[in-house]
Design a protein around this nucleic acid. Structure first.
Lengths: 156, 156
DNA sequence: TTGCAATCTCAAGTCAGGTTTAGATCAAGT
DNA sequence: ACTTGATCTAAACCTGACTTGAGATTGCAA
């Protein structure tokens, strides 16, 4: 159990469901690292399956690759991460899930008020006065939420 | 109250917190429509403030502009949407929020199991066997979730 | 040892969701 | 009438997250 602990990129891809090209991309972005075979092919540790899985979960929570890289940076660089290491950073993830759920529940409550009054006027019901950063994924309108919130969207 | 019911693009932008360029972009994508002044400038109805607000809320829930366009298409084209119209499509949104929350709660539960056993092995805990489409925003790994789920990410 | 799939690198392409730029025109206050 | 800010169009550019393509090399298997 030394040679066989190393897997090729194709196997890592198959094990995680991520495309080979995506794995190379993640490596380029510093989210994972690879050893090299004599001929220059990437060789991953089995532990990297876990690492890639983490990336996938974090992405579903709306983290950018950069943010995910920051989380992963908390793992030990020298040794293979153990259960305690993973528990620590998975707990971070759990907190994010909690925050996300709380934000959605707030949105739901406010939307219910809006449905109730049929207004959707947003100033009255305050649907935007929230600063829900987690939801601020991708491009999207740049200066909604935060900076200008509170002086926004008054119908009439 | 006939002329004054029309607002310029700058005012719509100011009222919603969305950039003028984004409003033009939404129009190009068919999410909103504009009348034109004699000189060719866009003129919006006050009701469009509500429409843009809806776009913003829906975006926060992870809907793509295309999906949002589909929702908005349910509004009456002829007359200005009334409270009942908005209530109907806001209710759709509420259902999506509920689904999203439920999905996150499932993820949280599964992650807790993973933290518990320190595994993150995903096959055992089934963190991916979910088909959480709502989370599938942006680019992301194409063939995770759905198609190949269930045969994914077994550590070891 | 030959053959073919898997890998490699590097550059370019894709898609969503906008923003920026340029040069021209409109509209409103004085 | 004049000026100045708001708007117009079209096209180019941007970021994030990958994918695709081309041409060369590697590695396992028969």
């Amino acid at each position: 159990m030394h040679r066989t602990d190393l897997i090729a990129i194709g196997e890592l891809a198959a094990r995680t469901g991520v495309a080979v090209s995506a794995i190379r991309f993640y490596e380029a972005k510093g989210l994972i690292e690879a050893l090299r075979s004599g001929g220059g092919q990437r060789r991953f540790l089995r532990a990297d399956i876990r690492r890639v899985s983490f990336i996938l979960i974090a992405q579903q929570l709306g983290l950018s690759l950069e943010e995910i890289a920051a989380e992963l940076a908390q793992l030990p660089a020298q040794r293979t991460p153990n259960a305690a290491d993973w528990t620590r950073i998975s707990t971070d993830l759990r907190a994010r899930i909690d925050a996300r759920i709380a934000a959605l529940e707030r949105t739901r409550e406010l939307l219910d008020q809006c449905i109730g009054c049929g207004c959707l006027s947003l100033k009255k019901c305050g649907l935007y006065n929230r600063g829900d950063k987690a939801a601020q994924r991708g491009a999207g309108p740049r200066y909604l939420l935060g900076d200008r919130a509170g002086e926004i969207a008054e119908v009439g």
